[in-house]
Nucleic acid binder design. Structure first.
Lengths: 278, 278
DNA sequence: TTGTACGCGTTATCAT
DNA sequence: ATGATAACGCGTACAA
């Protein structure tokens, strides 16, 4: 910065002001300084800026979920927003880190806010967006499971409903679907644990196995409505439907909400994100 | 830090030395200082430290892959190592960021090194680990596709081989498998694009469809060997095999290699990671 | 509109 | 073995 200042024949403070878009700087000076900045390929030092401003420009993303196949889309959504406001996300996959350990890292790096996927600890004193579950104490983003259930029931039109894949449907969805009565003998099957576990249990149960297809008869029968999360082409290949889990949208929303909180704006407390079925 | 120093009756410099484990400090002083640090819940400021040391303790993880369902495991592997050496990963999902934009962020935040998933730009001047493909110019981590091909061929024992799911097998694997001749009419099918696209193409082809199971006949026949990446229980439910993509191991390895590079140690240039089949 | 000077919280270099 | 002090690079009152 000192180099730029000297080269442009102004003071460091002026360079700083130009950089920060201070309106008091004359356009002549501003243009001159920008010219030098570009010519010298000067990049401000985020550490020094952070030290001076007492904030780092870093936000933290905590991910507890073991199975989160849409994580890259979620992060992409976050980045899309953060890149426009000069904030950098730090990501942890936190399942095995304890809260106190994480906290000390937040403090050390002067993290400005947190996006927490899963259920955040109750006593965090950082700006926090909770993603996935409604937490009374925090602004939260929740997939609109009730709406998904309605869509599925309508689409099923009496068929038995079968899920496949490793994405874990929420409890709300399962409860909703439990109320559904189809036409078949077993009008509905939804596993009661995570899906992989549920499937494992089925395999070990005493249903007959269709040796011809290599496919478990009790798992997927003729006439069933098969549902997969996010594997669009695979689902179609199997004659089923794909539920689009709105990970990208959730990332975008989480980032926007956090930015607004950091700017002391009011934000809606509970935010629902819609699924779509294809 | 000044508070701690005053409270412990020593100088700031001494506190700093205690914190950094300087061996010249007497054990009496050390214990006293640690006591005060804990009592006051003092946490060092990473920004100030970084400013002074001219490095941030930040490393960057770039992810180009659109489909990377093991990203959370990969990041967990990275974190596992980084947490032991006081380095924090910043993650970008970078498919839509241009190199110059990323570079300026690296510079601004004094990023110490980069883990790049995909094919990194040729002219980066940061310590860099390339993950997924062998890049002559960089230390790289590559899944051992050749080995996987051997395992599959041995396990198939003449059966036709069919992949499913959204994970994209590497070109090497496909080339290797092309050399394989099984017993069936079509001894082998591997799609020639990404898998989802390949599946989509099959659906639109003129094969017959098995209406009984709702399953496409041409996609998966009796006697075929079905392979899925990482969906263990689902694969088993379908009577197939699960290929374990070693994402966690790759994350751990990437982090270890990068740390060693930052410590100016020699590291192997090409690193293979083994699959396992279950 | 721009310059001066101090503070931000560490580490590192001299001293002692 | 420890203390005093100068960087580190930037933002910002306060002055001019």
């Amino acid at each position: 910065m000192a180099d730029v200042a000297k080269e442009a024949g102004v003071d460091k403070a002026t360079v700083s002001r130009v950089l920060r878009g201070d309106p008091r700087i004359s356009s002549k000076t501003r243009e001159k300084v920008w010219e030098v900045i570009k010519r010298l390929e000067y990049k401000p030092n985020a550490l020094a800026r952070g030290l001076s401003e007492r904030k780092s420009g870093l936000i933290s993303v905590e991910v507890e979920e073991q199975q989160f196949s849409g994580l890259n889309r979620f992060l992409k959504g976050i980045n899309r927003i953060m890149a426009t406001v000069n904030k950098e996300p730090i990501i942890y996959v936190a399942d095995d880190f304890e809260a106190s350990f994480l906290r000390s890292r937040f403090v050390a790096h002067k993290v400005e806010g947190i996006i927490w996927v899963g259920s955040p600890p109750p006593d965090v004193d950082f700006p926090l967006i909770a993603v996935g579950e409604t937490i009374d104490k925090h602004v939260s983003i929740v997939p609109f499971w009730e709406d998904l259930a309605q869509m599925i029931i309508k689409l099923a039109d009496g068929r038995r409903i079968v899920f496949a894949g490793d994405t874990k449907p929420n409890r709300t969805l399962k409860v909703k679907l439990k109320g559904y009565k189809g036409k078949g003998k077993n009008s509905l099957w939804v596993c009661d644990g995570t899906l992989p576990k549920g499937i494992g249990r089925l395999i070990n149960s005493n249903y007959e196995i269709d040796q011809d297809s290599g496919f478990k008869e009790e798992y997927f029968r003729k006439g069933d409505m098969l549902l997969l999360f996010d594997e669009r082409d695979f689902a179609k290949a199997m004659g089923g439907y794909c539920i689009h889990f709105p990970c990208f949208e959730m990332g975008v929303l989480a980032a926007k909400l956090l930015v607004n909180i950091l700017r002391h704006r009011d934000v809606p407390f509970k935010n629902l994100v819609r699924f779509s079925i294809e």
